[in-house]
Design a protein around this nucleic acid. Structure first.
Lengths: 216, 216
DNA sequence: GCTCAAAAATGAGCGTGCTCAACATTGAGC
DNA sequence: GCTCAATGTTGAGCACGCTCATTTTTGAGC
């Protein structure tokens, strides 16, 4: 059996990821070089690229693991009986508070995460799709309880909520919103609007659904 | 007067931008080198960086100008008397059709545009804020006509709509949505949901606004 | 405990975006 | 039309991420 081989490989990968994380936190993503990571991990520079697709992949791997834990924890700690709005806020602000630990690094992550390539993109999809499913579950639950419109498609509502979250996150990390509380406030406002809708009840249920081919 | 000086400068900048555009379209953003751009523009490689902050800035400049025209045209050609949903779709699909001309390049643009730095970020903000204001105007108009809820904040609704647009755009450019029509359909669905809201009319107007400090 | 093919690690080298000290051009003042 | 400070241009050079031919390590088969 190749126990030693596997052990060495695992050790090296762990050392590389550990070194990368330490340096990313210390200096920031852009200011960290792959040569530094290799040196700190005690391997040659080329070895880093045996274990990671590229530099961005290191950051993505590091965050994918951590984010997975945050997702799980967010849904596990969901207070029962809470309103839909508060449930959504509980989930999304979990992420924001996680990113708040290092906003500089968070910026690099979020910047890269939206346009990944190849295997890294697939891994992100495998993280993202179940998550969106869980968020959709919150809407479906509200629907089952007779709180939400029956015609609503839970997955579409989940995507809308996620979109609002992502915008608030991006605005915050770009300095357009001054602080985490400001970002949370903006997100709450956006979600409130999504829950309540735009149109008046009288206008909405009658006019809009039938406006497939509308007036010129 | 330094007419010749200014003329030369303008000429050179125009030549550089023209060369960059041609090569970006021909080869794609990543596959185009600054050296190639310089050669095609008939200047030294260092000269490119006199006129552009960096390579990404070239692409951003090129697209900012074009996008500005698309924004203007989208609102100018807004059919009067159209529903709010169709008005939003008219505006956002204008952008999508513009990006559809070259989705490879569009991917590079959208990837870079969300996390710009320094002056480029400010220029994007100066493009984006009035645009969001115009979208907010559509919601305010619906409000004035008594079609939209009076409590609605037009700017927040505009941000939500933009967020949904951005997500559909990103999903499309990442190949998660197979075609432009698919992206348009997804956006329409998302916007419909935003207009109609999530909660039932009965539940919405009474419970939610007062849920500031909700149950544990 | 030797052998040797497979697996893993290496680092010189490549092409890149970008900088900056050196050089060239311009035109107002005389 | 000459001078020279200001303005504009240049390309050698740097550090970077990443590749890949070469070298080193591993352990099953004997």
């Amino acid at each position: 059996m190749s126990g030693l081989r596997a052990q060495n490989k695992a050790d090296k990968e762990a050392r590389i990821l550990e070194a990368a994380w330490a340096l990313f936190v210390e200096r920031g993503y852009d200011a960290t070089t792959v040569r530094e990571i290799a040196q700190r991990a005690g391997v040659a520079q080329g070895t880093v690229f045996v274990y990671a697709q590229d530099k961005q992949d290191l950051l993505a791997t590091l965050f994918a693991a951590r984010l997975g834990a945050v997702v799980e924890s967010a849904f596990a700690t969901l207070p029962p009986g809470v309103s839909l709005l508060d449930a959504l806020m509980h989930v999304f602000t979990s992420f924001m508070r996680f990113y708040a630990q290092d906003t500089r690094l968070a910026r690099s992550v979020v910047r890269g995460v939206l346009f990944l390539e190849g295997p890294a993109a697939e891994r992100m999809e495998r993280l993202n799709r179940p998550f969106l499913g869980q968020v959709a579950g919150l809407f479906a639950q509200a629907q089952a309880q007779g709180l939400a419109r029956a015609e609503l498609v839970p997955f579409v509502a989940a995507l809308n909520a996620f979109a609002a979250y992502f915008m608030a996150l991006a605005a915050w990390l770009n300095g357009l919103l001054p602080s985490l509380p400001a970002a949370e406030a903006q997100l709450r406002l956006a979600l409130e609007h999504q829950l309540l809708g735009v149109l008046l009840p009288s206008a909405s249920t009658i006019e809009l659904p039938t406006q497939q081919g509308a007036a010129p």
